[in-house]
Design a protein around this nucleic acid. Structure first.
Lengths: 261, 261
DNA sequence: GGAGTTTATTACATTATATGCAATCGGTTA
DNA sequence: TAACCGATTGCATATAATGTAATAAACTCC
């Protein structure tokens, strides 16, 4: 509703021009010449200069006294840290989770690494309810659940290895797969490549798909999970996969994940 | 015009108006009403609104769809992370931080003075995870956290005193210590003498140890922090203390801290 | 060491737009 | 339902942003 009106809302054009310049400054993390900044923001140097003068007055930009190059200033740092300080990944993810549920019409969940394992911290059911074994607080197995596999693939090996060892032993005892490190390695390689995990082995009849969410330092922050009865789930698998990955990537960007990678 | 030109350089006044609004947003780390932001930046609400419209278009500000409150947006985060990436001391400290983590096998962190307080800017977990309240972007209390205490002890009093005042009032209200300037003075003297701060009061069950890192001018640049569950942490306290202080001193030398002192 | 380049900064006339005020909208309270 | 509160919009006008082009300052290359 209000989204439609965005274009008609009256704003301050100088702010939008200035923001283009700031964005140009974030593109390369080093001091730059006026000429280059102006070119990157697509404006004449004289114009860019006047904006930089005001940015400097407000501490958003600093000019090196030696070289005359322009760089981001102290207030830019404060702005970012202030934005960072109010950011709780799980809180931020809540609306995204609801959107995903509405889009794919499946049960969705959010997991973080805590409590000695991959732990479900949010849960949103679709109209068709899923097994109760997936509840908030549940710790998911690393090798056998899609959720766990994401943590297995994207967390540092030091973090997960003690748990893998224990879990493989359990798998052997219970007659489940995988049972060897080699199998785990192969699985992990595959998941890193696809950037999502999919399995229906953990809960028979239920398929689960999990995608990683990274934070500003590029390390794994959370896993975004979709699940449902395997027949209908697999029937819409392509769109579910696409939607889940897209939402996970949106969240990663929101958390300041560095570009690329 | 009879008014002498105080500002010799021509700038863009809208940028300076807008920056006032952004600064108002950093003052309190939570979503705010248009009315309050306008008041804090000393401008009519109608004016502030137009600036916010453009800030939203550029991603610097976001408006919560539920409440209509305004908050800093994703681009503000990008700006800050980009500014952070260019900070020499933080870049230099990154490898030292990892070495310290490997040496003492505890969670370690790096804090700088920004965003109105002692702010965590880097974080490296050991295998045993620690409370989530310590995350990148978190602003640590000056009087109750080891990290804050280091800034309290080694930053100039003019910088910290407004925050101390507020924090002591909060402590009184919440029934916490310290509550008086005298107690703070005693604490500060002690920390200056030992050249590190140690406490487990801020997060119950978690012990934190922070050591100062000085720059070439001899002023406090960052704090190097180690933390862990209090029992195992205190068991290895002597070696953790020694290692943390040693790394902090190495970093100080790296930053050109003058000898002696 | 001086002429020629490149880059940064300033001056000015002409638009474009930021501003204040008051009206309207949309939701909540009494 | 009215009264209230905060958010948003319309409008006329003062103000500020813009492009162009000139000047200054720094650097290159013989």
């Amino acid at each position: 509703m209000s989204v439609r009106k965005v274009k008609s809302q009256q704003g301050i054009s100088s702010i939008e021009v200035g923001a283009r310049l700031l964005r140009a400054m974030t593109l390369e993390a080093r001091p730059r010449m006026l000429r280059d900044l102006a070119a990157a923001a697509q404006m004449p140097a004289a114009k860019a200069h006047r904006y930089l003068v005001s940015f400097m007055r407000m501490g958003l930009v600093e000019q090196q006294s030696e070289t005359g190059l322009y760089d981001l200033g102290g207030f830019a740092l404060e702005l970012g840290l202030s934005a960072l300080a109010r950011m709780e990944p799980v809180t931020l993810a809540a609306p995204a989770l609801a959107e995903l549920r509405d889009e794919i019409e499946q049960t969705v969940a959010l997991a973080v690494w805590a409590n000695q394992g991959a732990t479900i911290v949010r849960w949103l059911g679709a109209d068709t309810p899923v097994s109760a074994s997936l509840r908030v607080g549940a710790v998911m197995p690393l090798t056998r659940s899609a959720t766990g596999q994401v943590f297995l693939a994207f967390l540092p090996a030091e973090t997960t290895s003690p748990y893998i060892k224990k879990e493989l032993a359990d798998n052997v005892r219970l007659g489940l797969n995988p049972t060897h490190r080699d199998q785990v390695e192969q699985l992990v390689t595959e998941i890193r490549h696809r950037s999502y995990a999919l399995t229906s082995e953990f809960i028979p009849g239920i398929a689960g798909l999990a995608a990683p969410v990274f934070d500003h330092s590029g390390s794994l922050s959370m896993a975004l999970v979709s699940l449902g009865y395997d027949k209908p789930f697999e029937a819409s698998l392509p769109s579910i996969t696409a939607a889940t990955i897209r939402k996970a990537e949106q969240l990663s960007r929101r958390l300041g994940k560095p570009a690329g990678r």
